[in-house]
């Protein structure tokens, strides 16, 4: 019981990191980044490749930085020049990017699966209320909490965070005030994609690395984003926690239906609240 609860929290934590990135990008550019799952995968592989040289924590940072750079380029060469194009065009382009990145991962690392070991101090089990539990999973959970808190602190307490929040609401009004919205855009999309890389690297020791490792979790984070109300951090955190528990308990009690459960949850939320849990901002 406690194990499922914790597993649900860990998976929910990964979903929080991933969907926060999606929400950040969506807030600023009104685009759902369909390449986000591929960025998660890429983050895991980057961590795999550099961990031998810089250790696990360095690899975690490297994945964040590498994907941030990808995000900055994505904003500079795709989102910004296509700002006035229909969103469908940009959405399809991110789907094209998903295909490209997935294939590049296959080209560089091949199709065989790899595994990344957790950092040496966090390999064993730990005793949680009398039940042994892999300590690294708790590290992932802590990492998710830290990432979410840091993101909120950045957005709420710093000037650039203020600029980012303003630009997400009204990018023209923000620009007129002298805020360099191009730079804010690059930074926000960079951090958003960096978070995908971070999530991938953090998840790497939990499961096998394969070129399609991002496919399942990105679907769940899309579901989280929709249930949460698309542009809401709070909504997506609640939705991620909910979905994490559903997946964890479903895996034990209804294994054949786990893949349908997120959709059932989503359908239920949409029937009751078509704009999601925190959906006041849409419509």
């Amino acid at each position: 019981m406690i194990i499922q609860l914790l597993n649900g929290l860990v998976y929910g934590g990964l979903l929080v990191i991933l969907s926060s990135g999606l929400v950040l990008i969506f807030g600023l550019r009104q685009v759902v980044n369909f390449a986000h799952g591929a960025f998660y995968t890429l983050g895991a592989y980057v961590a795999l490749s550099v961990s031998a040289f810089v250790g696990f924590w360095g690899a975690l940072a490297a994945a964040f930085v590498a994907l941030s750079v990808v995000g900055i380029a994505l904003d500079r060469f795709c989102f910004r020049p296509l700002q006035n194009r229909p969103h469908a065009v940009v959405l399809i382009i991110t789907f094209g990017l998903f295909l490209i990145v997935t294939d590049l991962v296959q080209l560089v690392w091949g199709r065989e699966s790899y595994s990344l070991l957790p950092p040496p101090d966090f390999t064993g089990p730990v005793d949680v209320f009398g039940t042994p539990y892999p300590v690294y999973r708790l590290v992932v959970l802590a990492l998710a909490v830290v990432a979410a808190v840091a993101l909120q602190a950045w957005l709420r307490l710093t000037r650039i965070g203020l600029h980012a929040r303003a630009a997400a609401t009204d990018i023209v009004a923000t620009g007129i005030q002298g805020v360099n919205t191009d730079r804010v855009g690059a930074l926000v999309v960079g951090v958003g994609c960096g978070l995908a890389g971070l999530a991938g690297a953090a998840a790497a020791p939990l499961l096998a690395l394969t070129p399609s490792m991002g496919d399942a979790i990105i679907i769940d984070s899309f579901v989280v984003m929709v249930i949460g109300g698309l542009g809401s951090f709070g909504g997506s955190i609640v939705a991620a926690a909910l979905l994490g528990q559903i997946q964890a308990f479903g895996a034990v009690y209804m294994p054949s239906l786990t893949t349908l459960l997120p959709f059932v949850l989503m359908a239920a939320v949409l029937v009751i609240r078509p704009t999601g849990l925190a959906g006041a901002r849409i419509s």
Partner: peptide, 20 residues
């Protein structure tokens, strides 16, 4: 069900249904 939600969510919803 899905036509109740705003258009932006549509692509994500259809993808999620497909995978399920």
């Amino acid at each position: 069900v899905i036509m109740r939600s705003p258009g932006i969510a549509f692509s994500m919803l259809t993808l999620a249904i497909n995978v399920a």
